[in-house]
Simulated scan of single mutants.
Amino acid sequence: MSERGVAHFGERYGGEGAAPRFAQWNEVIASLLGHRSVRRYIQKPLPEGTLELLVAAAQSAPSSSNLQLWSVLSVQDPDRRRRLAELAGGQAHVRDAGLFLVWLADLRRLGDLAKHRGAAHEGLDYLEMFVMAVVDAALAAQNALVAAESLGLGTVYIGALRNHPEAVAAELGLPAQVFAAFGLCVGWPDPAAPASIKPRLPQSVVLHHEQYGAFERSVGALDAYDRLMDGFYTKERMGVQGSWSHHSAARVASAQSLRGRDRLRAALSAMGFALK
């Protein structure tokens, strides 16, 4: 393992435990372990062809049955970016990043193709197809993110587009059966505001063997993670109130905690998804 990989591993787990000795190691894995969310960007143009290269990387991701039930929309217009930033809770990086991509769960294209070929397409009305489309979009987007970060670019996902799905659809001119699942900011990170690697839960919490383990076995590790994240919040001056456990539980405490996404099923129905 390279020195960079050892450092990234340590930051990812907050220095808890030594990095394992892998028989094989490469810089792709080091880049993955070094991911961090970048929310401050400098106003420097991206290299020519960046968008097309990222889309090619996205299209190289797996797709269930090769149905490719996703699309991506590049938003460059400053006014549209500003409006989307407000719909996403006032996140300035939506406006300021060199590139803003909206990843779409897209059942419309396959439905239109079936109609064009004179074929039935009732299956598109079922929840399974929507799940497939969201999974396809997520896999494609993550490929694009990994490609962008391998070029030295910074990224951050924008899930808050789901706070106002109908308004986002109207802003982007989305037809029925096309859903903006999330956005992705891409740009040159601002060196004056470096982002840190955020610690994740210990592997003992997320890794199960053979069958799902009892929650009780993870309590000690979760308490330790709370302490680790307390230090991270303080170091990064994030102003988070309470522990990670408290913050996470508050996020699911009520329908209101979902920040508008509690009505997502109704919004999807209005947008043409039957979800049978």
Rank of each mutant, 00 (worst) to 15 (best):
E86P: 00
V38D: 05
L46A: 02
L107W: 06
G98S: 06
A57C: 13
G49I: 06
A114P: 00
S60K: 12
G34T: 02
I42G: 11
R39D: 04
F100V: 13
G90H: 02
N66G: 00
S63T: 13
L110A: 14
A105G: 12
A119N: 10
R83H: 14
V38C: 08
L84N: 07
S37L: 05
L99T: 10
G98T: 07
G90C: 06
Q76G: 12
A61K: 07
V72E: 02
G34M: 03
K44E: 15
D96I: 01
R40L: 04
G89I: 12
A119W: 13
S71P: 04
Q76Y: 00
P78C: 09
D79G: 15
G111E: 13
L73N: 06
G90M: 10
K115P: 00
L51H: 11
P62G: 12
L101S: 10
G89C: 06
A105S: 12
A56K: 12
P62C: 10
V102K: 08
R36D: 05
Q76D: 13
L69R: 11
A58L: 03
R36L: 04
P47S: 03
A119I: 07
K115M: 11
R117T: 03
H93M: 14
P47N: 06
R117L: 15
E52M: 01
D79Q: 15
P47C: 07
Q91R: 06
S60D: 09
Q68D: 08
W103V: 12
L87F: 12
A58N: 04
V94K: 03
G111T: 11
D112P: 02
S74F: 02
A114D: 12
L99F: 09
S37N: 09
D77G: 05
Q59A: 11
E48V: 14
L51G: 13
V38H: 07
W103A: 08
L107V: 10
G89A: 10
L110H: 07
G118L: 08
L53C: 01
S63W: 03
A56V: 05
D96M: 04
G90Y: 02
L69W: 04
G34C: 01
K115T: 14
P78E: 11
N66V: 08
A58Y: 00
V72H: 01
L51F: 14
A114V: 05
R36C: 13
L99W: 07
V72T: 15
G89H: 08
G111R: 11
H35P: 01
A58D: 02
